[in-house]
């Protein structure tokens, strides 16, 4: 049983992650006074897209078709090292979070190249912005993980979240609160949510992530949407593992964890409903703020 648990967790993530976007949309609808889409809308969208025949631009090469495939595989491989409810996945090793960060980098690399492959000015614009924000988001995320490593004295995700207990929270609450805030900001930026980017905007000039995938259709678009939902889960799970130190049995932890993931999605929905998106030149400021939070947390922890 102990051996198959990580695989059950992995499959659960693969299956449940599209639900988070449904939750976000429901929360936003609630704020707007609408009924909103069904919770499982993304599943239907994915099914529909997989059944569709794609259209390819005449400019494109294999990069355009291969980009989404590689990107989604990178995110799925990243899930292999992602802890679930504070428990390790089937792959856990020293420095696995470095591997995770670089897998996300791989996904971004090919998404951006696939966008540039179309030769469209809009998609180039989105690609340029994506890389710009990554330059600010990655150090913030990295420094946050470094601070977490320093708090727990561990150098793997499973180790860090495994040793994180309520006693750690009692001792280092300010540091962990700062880190949670920083990770949440990185989550918003990396998953192109308001205030960094608006997934529902209808003007190409203001888009970031959505504009990069304008030309994708059919199975490729399905891969992209699915990859996005996995990525949201990934960042949400990091926050959840940090805020919820593992306590009881596997089943209890898992239940609390899943509830918390829904809560994270709801929080994203609330942020989207109550905030306007930032002006494009202000987005780096938000990420620099996240960086400052991570840096403060690390300095606090090192000054102890």
């Amino acid at each position: 049983m102990e051996i198959i648990k990580p695989f059950i967790q992995f499959l659960a993530v693969m299956f449940l992650s599209p639900l988070l976007l449904g939750v976000i949309n429901r929360v936003k609808a609630l704020f707007a006074g609408r009924r909103g889409q069904p919770l499982c809308q993304l599943y239907w969208d994915l099914y529909k897209l997989f059944m569709k025949t794609p259209v390819y631009s005449r400019t494109t090469t294999w990069v355009f078709k291969g980009g989404p495939v590689i990107a989604v595989s990178a995110v799925v491989a990243a899930l292999a090292v992602l802890p679930f409810a504070g428990r390790q996945s089937f792959l856990a090793f020293e420095g696995d979070f470095i591997f995770l960060i670089y897998l996300l980098g791989l996904a971004r690399f090919f998404t951006v190249l696939a966008a540039l492959d179309t030769g469209s000015a809009f998609e180039g614009m989105g690609a340029s912005r994506e890389m710009q924000f990554a330059v600010f988001a990655e150090p913030a995320f990295f420094l946050g993980l470094a601070a977490l490593s320093r708090v727990t004295g561990q150098t793997s995700l499973a180790g860090m979240f495994g040793t994180l207990t309520s006693a750690t929270w009692a001792a280092a609450a300010p540091v962990l609160i700062l880190l949670t805030a920083s990770f949440f900001m990185v989550l918003l930026a990396e998953n192109s949510r308001v205030p960094a980017d608006d997934p529902n905007t209808h003007l190409e000039l203001t888009m970031i992530h959505e504009v990069m995938v304008l030309d994708h259709s059919g199975p490729e678009l399905a891969y992209i949407l699915y990859g996005a939902s996995l990525k949201l889960w990934l960042f949400g799970a990091l926050i959840a593992c940090m805020v919820l130190p593992r306590g009881g049995s596997w089943a209890a932890d898992t239940a609390v964890f899943l509830l918390f993931m829904v809560a994270v999605a709801a929080a994203v929905g609330v942020v989207e409903s109550v905030m306007a998106r930032l002006r494009m030149i202000k987005v780096p400021y938000m990420l620099i703020t996240a960086f400052a939070f991570s840096a403060l947390a690390l300095i606090f922890q090192m000054g102890r």
Partner: peptide, 22 residues
């Protein structure tokens, strides 16, 4: 993932067109 894409596209001929130019 690549094989799955191939499976979904099996027997279909994707259309080609210009890049979306707004």
């Amino acid at each position: 993932a690549a094989a799955k894409r191939g499976f979904f596209l099996h027997g279909r001929s994707p259309a080609s067109g210009p890049t979306w130019d707004c």
